[in-house]
Amino acid sequence: MQGSDKGQAASLDGSSLAIGIVQARFNAEITGRLAETCIAELKALGVAENNIRHVTVPGALEVGVALDVMATSDQYDALIALGCIIRGETYHFELVSNESGAAVTRVSLDNQLPIANAILTVENEEQARVRAEVNGREAARVAVEMANLMEALQ
């Protein structure tokens, strides 16, 4: 194996990147906060506002299809999935959590495009509120870092 990236600093320069965001509207207070912090962090990392495309879908299960359309358009260097699934009293939580996560992963692998998955899966609204700001910001950082890594690997 030639060379090593071990210990190499991550590139968080977003100035040349185009990023797509798909936000689920279900649990809108939480997903709106995720989007706010995510977009603010993307801008702080140098991503131009006109290079950020932010769309919304009804819920977490619809995120995957919107991501797939964006991924196949070849217009984006990375995508971000935003949503919030709060445990209820039925199996529906597990179904939505598992299927939305699987869809995000499948779209990423099928298109060889990084997707930062910030679809929160939490026990209650308090947990969601605590995680919204941190996870929105982290999703932006992951998207920029991975987009730059994919470019470096090619």
Rank of each mutant, 00 (worst) to 15 (best):
L120N: 14
E125G: 02
V107A: 02
S108I: 00
E99A: 00
V122E: 03
A103Y: 09
L113Q: 03
L120A: 10
D110G: 02
V107M: 05
N117F: 11
V107E: 13
E126Y: 06
A103L: 04
F93V: 01
V104R: 15
H92M: 06
I119D: 10
S97L: 09
N111E: 14
A103K: 12
E125Y: 12
N124E: 12
I119M: 12
L109M: 12
N124I: 13
V104N: 14
E123C: 03
F93N: 01
N117K: 11
I115K: 12
S108T: 00
N111A: 06
V122H: 01
P114I: 06
L109T: 03
Q112A: 13
L120T: 11
A116K: 12
E125K: 11
L109Y: 01
N98M: 11
E123Y: 06
A118V: 01
V122L: 03
E126Q: 15
F93M: 03
N98C: 07
T121A: 15
E94W: 03
N124L: 10
N117M: 06
D110Y: 00
N98D: 05
T105S: 15
V96F: 07
A103N: 14
V122S: 04
V96I: 12
A118M: 08
L109E: 08
L95A: 00
E123T: 15
L109I: 05
A102N: 02
P114L: 07
N98W: 05
E99Q: 08
E123K: 14
G101I: 04
E126A: 13
N124C: 10
